[in-house]
Amino acid sequence: MKEATLELPLAQLLRQFPLAGEFFHTMGLPLPPGTMSPATYFATLDNVLLEDLALARESLGEQFTDYLSLLSTLGKGRSSSRLESITILGGHDKSNRREEFTLTVRPGEIISLVGPTGSGKSRFLADIEWLAQGDSPTGRSLLIDGFPPEPGLRYAIDRKLVAQLSQNMNFVMDLSVEEFITMHAESRMMEDIPGITRNIIALANDLAGEQFSPGTPVTSLSGGQSRALMIADTSCLSNSPIVLIDEIENAGIDRKRAVHTLVDKQKIVLIATHDPILALMGERRLVFKNGGISAIITTSPGERANLKLFEEMDAKLGAVRNALRNGERIESFLWE
C-alpha cells in the first residue's frame, strides 16, 4: 500500500485521513497543494529548506506512511472493545518467598494497596504497567481477559494499562483549562471535542467545590481544583483501563465521589493509601511486605460498618473545618 498511497493527491488522502495534514505541520513543512501527491511534493522540496529543517528527503515518504498507519491504529484503539479482566499471577518477594495468589480484577472495582514505603507497591504497578511475563524482578505474570497479552502491547504507548494520579503531580503547561482539555482530546482523536471539554469542566467543578471557569489558566488552579480536574480528565479522556491514585488524602476534594467518578467510567481503581475511608472503600486490599504481596484481605461487613462510622466522623470534621473557615465558634455541634 505504501508506494501507492504516496502517489495519491493530498486532497484524496485527506478525505481518508483528515489529520494527515498535521504531518507536514509537525515536520515544519508548508502544506502541499491538494492536487499534488506527497511523492511529488517530497521529490521537489528545496534542498536548503530540508537542510534547515534537518529532514532527509529519502526518508520522508516512509515517515509519512508510518504517520498514516499511526493515525489508523489510534483510530482503532479508540473504538476497540474494553478489557474484561486483568489477572495477576503471584511471583515472589525480595527473599524469594513465593506469593500464593492469583488476583483477577474487573472494570469498576476498587482495590486498595497498603504497606510501608519500600514494601513493593511501585514494583507491583510497574509489573502491571509493563505486562510482566515472569521476566520482572518479582517473577509475576499478567493475563488480559485470561490470556497472555500480545507482545506488541507492551510498548504501545497509546494503549498503556495504567494512568496515575498523585499529590506530586502538577500542570506545567501555560494554557487555560479549556485549551488544555481540548489539546488532550485532540491527541486522543476524539469526536465532539467541545462537548467533551464542557463535560469534563462541569465534572471537575462538581468535585472541587470551589468553581473555576473554562478560561482559568491550569497553573493557577488551587490544589483541590487541580486534583479534581485531573480526575475528571483521566476518567473521561484517558484510554488506560486502570487508574492508580496515590496520596490524595489532603487533596481538598470529595475523595469518595472522586473515586466513584472513576468507577462509574468503568475504570479499575487502585488506591495506595492508609486513609481509612479510602482503604476500606475497596472491595479488597493488597498487603505489601518485603517486596511481595503477603495477604489479600476482603473488606468484611464489620469493616464496612466501621467505614460508615468513619465517614460520619469525617463529615463532622469537614463541618468543623468549614465553621473555622467562616469564623464561627466550634463549641456545640461536635456532640449533636
Partner: peptide, 9 residues
Amino acid sequence: DIVSQAERE
C-alpha cells in the same frame, strides 16, 4: 511523576 496524566499522554 510530576506532571499530570493528560500532559504525559
